[in-house]
């Protein structure tokens, strides 16, 4: 058991280091952009004296390294700094939007992950027959279309023609859970269609790969049904690759929603980020970047941990 704990501890340490490296990269990245915050606040016509004064006030004249550690120290204590454009506290502004984004992503994930894995299993059971081809064809079609196009298709048919769900995903605090679900139905559906194909095809490929193993022949010669062979004997051995691709897609659901949020005017992280990039609000961009990176690294770490725990050779060493 201690072996598995060592492995997990190592994996956690790697994630922490990776996150630190990403924070340094984000800081350095915004640092090498031409011009600085003072310049963008005061505009092109600012006098050098005014710029110098503002820089001193904002602490921009200090060395980059000490500013980096100041920034990092603040983040560790939950202080993401203040937005330049309106002077509000970034942590406050992000909090609510992050909740919205995670809510949308979770809704999409709750539908997409079980659906993708079931479709993958179905495709394996009917390999090279029409259900397999239908599943592969449809999911591929959806991944091939740009997400904004799928979004507009859904708005036109489901919202405008059928009138089932609202086309604009407005959410506010006093909404009930059901009302919220109703509001995010279309963006969640769009996201589901976008991530489905990748997960489904990976599930199919991973299971088909395992189906070549000798123990599948053993199962077949034991007189087991096709479904039992796939679900009980193939799937448990295909968990690692499936979990990896699922987590990658979950991360995409959080990080890659920018376009979908803009289409459905959904008040999430994506919109917030886009707004402030165009205004060159560096502290907000840094904070958003760091949060996205945390999700990516965290979800991939979970995938690795599940892969480690799912491996009987590691779970039960000799």
């Amino acid at each position: 058991m201690s072996y598995i704990l060592t492995l997990l501890a190592k994996r956690l340490a790697i994630s922490a280091l990776l996150l630190l490296a990403v924070s340094a990269l984000i800081f350095a990245g915004t640092e090498i952009l031409p011009g600085d915050v003072a310049q963008s606040v005061l505009g092109q016509s600012a006098t050098p004296e005014a710029l110098a004064n503002l820089r001193r006030d904002m602490g921009l004249d200090e060395p980059a390294l000490s500013r980096y550690f100041g920034w990092l120290g603040g983040i560790v204590q939950g202080d993401l700094g203040t937005a330049l454009t309106n002077g509000t506290d970034i942590a406050d502004a992000i909090g609510k939007r992050l909740y919205n984004t995670v809510f949308l992503a979770s809704t999409a994930a709750v539908v997409a992950v079980p659906l993708a894995i079931s479709l993958g299993l179905l495709a394996v059971l009917y390999k090279n027959r029409w259900p397999d081809k239908l599943i592969s064809g449809t999911t591929l079609a959806f991944i091939s279309l740009p997400e904004f196009f799928i979004g507009y298709l859904l708005i036109y048919f489901v919202a405008v023609q059928l009138g089932w769900f609202p086309s604009v995903a407005t959410v506010y605090d006093s909404m009930t859970f059901a009302e919220r679900l109703n509001a995010v139905a279309l963006p969640a559906a769009t996201l589901t269609l976008v991530v489905l194909a990748h997960m489904m095809r990976m599930t199919r490929a991973a299971i088909l790969n395992v189906m070549q193993s000798a123990y599948i022949e053993t199962a077949e010669l034991k007189g087991l049904s096709a479904f039992r062979i796939v679900a009980k004997h193939a799937l448990p051995n295909a968990i690692a690759p499936i979990v990896n691709v699922v987590m990658l897609n979950l991360a995409y659901l959080v990080v890659g929603v920018v376009v979908v949020e803009v289409i459905f005017v959904y008040p999430g992280m994506g919109q917030y980020l886009v707004d402030h990039v165009s205004k060159r609000d560096v502290p907000v961009v840094q904070a958003c970047g760091l949060i996205f990176a945390t999700f990516y690294i965290g979800l991939n770490m979970i995938a690795d941990i599940i892969s480690i725990v799912a491996n009987p050779r590691i779970r039960h060493p000799r």
């Binding site: 123990y215 053993t218 010669l221 034991k222 007189g223 004997h233 448990p236 050779r313």
Partner: peptide, 24 residues
């Protein structure tokens, strides 16, 4: 055939190491 296999006739393969499912 499923009623025959694993019930009337069973099979022992050359490599039991590969013939057993590692997950169970």
């Amino acid at each position: 055939l499923r009623k025959v296999r694993g019930r009337q006739v069973c099979y022992v393969s050359q490599s039991a190491a590969a013939g057993f499912n590692p997950a169970h």
